[in-house]
Design a protein around this nucleic acid. Structure first.
Lengths: 212, 212, 212, 212
DNA sequence: TATGAATGAGGTTTCATTCAT
DNA sequence: GATGAATGAAACCTCATTCAT
């Protein structure tokens, strides 16, 4: 997260912004350099490759992402599944909100099926799978969650978690909802926590009354 | 949907497949030509432009997509919101399942914020918004759906609808779930219909007992 | 030898001339394009690679080179070793003289120890080795040639054969000898044939009297 | 020959090795730095230029080369041409053998017709010409050598002298002869001395019986 | 309808080099 | 004596595209 060199960070930010609006392949190194106010060669000095820049984005994103998951992991024994899951949703949405550009880009580019994506991603996502699956299954065993397929539930959840960042043009242009704003993110967060309570959980929690 | 020329269709399919695995910008006309077994110039003959090829993909996708929505539209008066919504979910998932490659590509590329995307997409999505919003609000008015923000609900729903196609590498590599298979799509479909019943709707429907 | 396309040939000649004076690595594609009067892309269209251009040079050179050797091969049974060897020397020098630029370049670049050189070259030179070694050994067995190590003799011979083309700056600048001229090549040819007669062969032939 | 600084020498050796396998133009400063285990800037500190490094190679090579020739020069009056020539061949081959990499590189790069090569080389080679021509002509006058063109003879001789170093891949890969080994160099040396005796000289010397 | 030849613009990357430290 | 950060120029190569056929 913390960049040693100011120049390196400047390049990173410029790249992120451009990758977001034009896609990774659609962005040229020259454009990035220009946006960062450095010479093209400087990018190669720091990231060695265009691929290196991409990898750096992925690693930076997942490093913190996995951190959040691991904090959830530690509470697996002590707290109840519903609370943990809601906490994780809370932190993930917050993290993606605070790293809007990066999240948008990674969520999007991850859907490409290239070598580098496959390799980088799979490791992180296997960890994620382990955590989420465990939580869901514990909840089911404890009789708190409904008997649903853990896989399908997680895929559903992930779809919901990414959507605000993935399709931000859609949300803003069509719905006038701006997930760069705290307000909307918080609303969406509540909705997902609510989903845990009424969709996943067998009995509706007190939160339900507050919203629905 | 129906291509006049076999050659044109061949090119379309080849392009689709490549766009999916390398992205639109990451795919070159030569690659498409090679994959389609035709000369590069032939692509220009049929689609005039690389942009033309992209547009053709979008139009082809949304043509049928909007068809499905419009069928739902016609039932707005006669049928109840919950049933209509479930029908739409059913048809959309089916459509995307049957046009796997195309859906994957469009869902993904739509997240880029370029001129062409913005223009093509917005028209279709505004229609979609009108329909879905109307259904949700009618349901709320009728006291069938919970009092939720229509916008947030639709965004949530769209996230869930796209996820299986967008992140197919994720689902297959990490969860061994293959949405190219009828079986998994049907399971997922049930889950979303269930979501309509227990999350959106105030009272849990009989379906709930069957699953949860 | 015969180029299908006039453009391709033009590029080839321009490349050859530049490779000779600046070396392969020292010559840029742009320079070649400019010298050939075509666009840079055209070179890539025909040769696909800078490496492809290099390979084309090698193959073109060795194709005819090996032809000459194979003609010598066929006479192995019928003619005497001394005559065959002199014929080969005669034809090789003629060939190199007629393809001055190409020979100069290949002889020089062959001394680099890269992958492509190793691969292309070895095949041809093994054939050459077989022929020359056979001739020398036959001559020794027949008691016509002195008992010398065939390997050392061939290396010595090859050094002499290449020298005029390899170091043409040296010969012209220091000795005012121009091997682009028939006259000098013929003189040099005589010298090497003479070498066969008095150095390789046991008894000095009548030719000796004519020269020495 | 004697490098003041160990670092400077390290760089020199690394450069030599790389120049040999990839050519001068084909080798980058970074590669040299990496091979030498120093920073790129260090090379510039010691040699100021890439050209400076090249010049240093040439000068280092020719300094000793010309020394050997000058020693021969001094004996022009006292000793007989045949003996002097053989001594020179002996010392030159020894020198090139002991500075294998350097000789290989210089012999090869000298064949390029660039400004720097022309300038550096010509001075040294004119000296060489004077010595060798004088020896040959003296021999002819004295009736010891055959009446041959001095120029052609020297060119022939130089071809033979360089071949083992120039085409070392050829000799090793095709003939399994390794001129890095004393044994093979000595054999080759004998062959060339023999060449002086039977080809250049009118009457065969006693050495002939020993070999042929 | 379909192609091969050719191109200009721009892509990524590497190069030798400098400068402050 | 030696280095790391940074650069401008130019390297190789690919791109979408056109045009004559």
């Amino acid at each position: 997260m913390v960049n040693q060199s100011a120049t390196k960070e400047k390049i990173f930010q410029a790249a992120l912004s451009l990758f977001n609006s034009k896609g990774y392949s659609g962005t040229s190194m020259r454009e990035i350099a220009k946006a960062a106010g450095v010479n093209v060669s400087t990018i190669f000095y720091y990231y060695s490759d265009k691929g290196g820049l991409l990898e750096y984005c992925f690693v930076t994103y997942f490093e913190e992402y996995i951190n959040i998951l691991e904090k959830g992991m530690k509470q697996l024994e002590s707290a109840d599944p519903s609370t943990i899951l809601k906490k994780i949703i809370h932190h993930l949405l917050d993290y993606q909100y605070q790293n809007y550009q990066l999240s948008r880009f990674v969520c999007r580019e991850v859907s490409i099926d290239s070598q580098i994506v496959r390799e980088t991603m799979t490791t992180y996502f296997r960890k994620e799978r382990y955590l989420l699956q465990t939580i869901i299954e514990k909840g089911i065993e404890a009789g708190v969650f409904r008997k649903l397929s853990a896989g399908i539930v997680v895929i559903q959840l992930k779809g919901m978690l990414n959507q605000p960042f993935l399709n931000s043009i859609y949300t803003s242009e069509v719905w006038n909802i701006y997930f760069q704003d705290r307000y909307y993110i918080d609303q969406y967060k509540k909705q997902l926590e609510y989903w845990v309570d009424v969709f996943l959980s067998k009995k509706t929690s007190p939160v339900e009354k507050a919203i629905g």
